[in-house]
Write a protein that binds this DNA or RNA. Sequence first.
DNA 1: TTCCTTCCATGATTCAGATCAGATAACTGC
DNA 2: GCAGTTATCTGATCTGAATCATGGAAGGAA
Lengths: 238, 238
Amino acid sequence: MVFTEPQHCSIDLRLRILSRLPFFKDLPAKAVEEINRHFVEMDYQRGERIYTAGDPAERLYVVADGKVRLLQHAESGKDVLLGILGSGEFFGNLAALGTAVHIDTAEAHTPICALSVRSEDFRQILDEHTGLALRALEVLGERLSAANQRVLLISAMPVDRRIAFMLLEISRKFGRQEEMGLLIDMPLSRDDLAEMTGATPETVSRVLSQLQSGGVITSGRQWIAITDRQKLEAQAGA
Amino acid sequence: MVFTEPQHCSIDLRLRILSRLPFFKDLPAKAVEEINRHFVEMDYQRGERIYTAGDPAERLYVVADGKVRLLQHAESGKDVLLGILGSGEFFGNLAALGTAVHIDTAEAHTPICALSVRSEDFRQILDEHTGLALRALEVLGERLSAANQRVLLISAMPVDRRIAFMLLEISRKFGRQEEMGLLIDMPLSRDDLAEMTGATPETVSRVLSQLQSGGVITSGRQWIAITDRQKLEAQAGA
DNA sequence: TTCCTTCCATGATTCAGATCAGATAACTGC
DNA sequence: GCAGTTATCTGATCTGAATCATGGAAGGAA
């Protein structure tokens, strides 16, 4: 079970990513091409930091290929994994105007290729193409909704339910049907899950062991597959 | 210590609120007047529900006078208080387009007067006045940032720090300097704080008692005043 | 292969905070 | 002022999950 992905993307991929973005979908091809000129390609190794919370938010990014981790850290050293982004998703400060700083930290969860644009340029693009800002609003709205959901999850549910819930969430986004079940198509460690659910790796390990012996999931080193979605949903809901 | 507020706002207040909104600040007075025509006034009693999560998001609101609670509820019955909004703040689905539903529940924390506009009308306003959408983006960005902060708080800090932190946060927004200290200018029960910090009312009560005997705060039934901000910050930071 | 590092499982123990249970004290309506 | 209700305090107990500790297994580099 190895997850290898190319570390840079072709010129072709680049334009295709941009034009397929829900974001730019309704724009004429010519406009997308014009917009494309403002983007530059940036590649990162697994684990590499793209930006850190507190840095001035000078650029905005789109994942072209690979997965990106968004996290928030406490002075205690404990990190919280806010989410994992896949191809086509924005990160950086979508609302960046002027002198804003990044509110989260982004790092490469797998080797990634990202497209990046200067905040000012993006702002200008928003200005020129009315309607795009509304799209941006939608994206932010969804993120806000997810974050609120998360607060509820962590502050009102026991760990085992949180973990079950999170697995469902992740599988919905990154699941790929395989013989063994619905495989989560990226490296996902116990630590990752712990940072997402506000638990410790030990606890996550225990809960996963239990799920595994219950026939709900199959898992190994850095990978998890859901074999019985029904049961998992029951676990999350009850 | 009683908190009474008028339950409806004058016609005059209404226009003043709108024109002073950071949101509409840069628009010509004429435009604001025009926009004003789309808004209607709505009054609510304390505790009254304005909308519930899952309802279709047909309207958008601005607090004219009073305080509004935004909350999210779990099936377990446990509620999470996402935030309390004061005069001039938006609520409802700022990103509402088409058939969206409310992601949270809003209720009157005090008697309130709200201004409300149909989502479609608001959307049209955004379309007509380029620049407004960027403002909306800023607002959502701030909320997202706050929500992420909250996730970090709850999943990486012990209760006493969470409560201290939350008190600072609230006082920053609703604090009013009085002889006794920095009074939080609205009813605020132990239950409210519990729902904001993911704790139980009993625990909140204990922590507040401790803060009070430490001379950090003074409190009574539904009110809290900060007498020693320095100490409170120490409590929140260490 | 063998070393070495990283990830994972699982047991034992501890502890922060929830839960349960009364006892006061403050407001409300009459 | 009195009764009833709602908010608060505080103690006693319990428990979910963290912490501490250790062994094992999977992959990477030479």
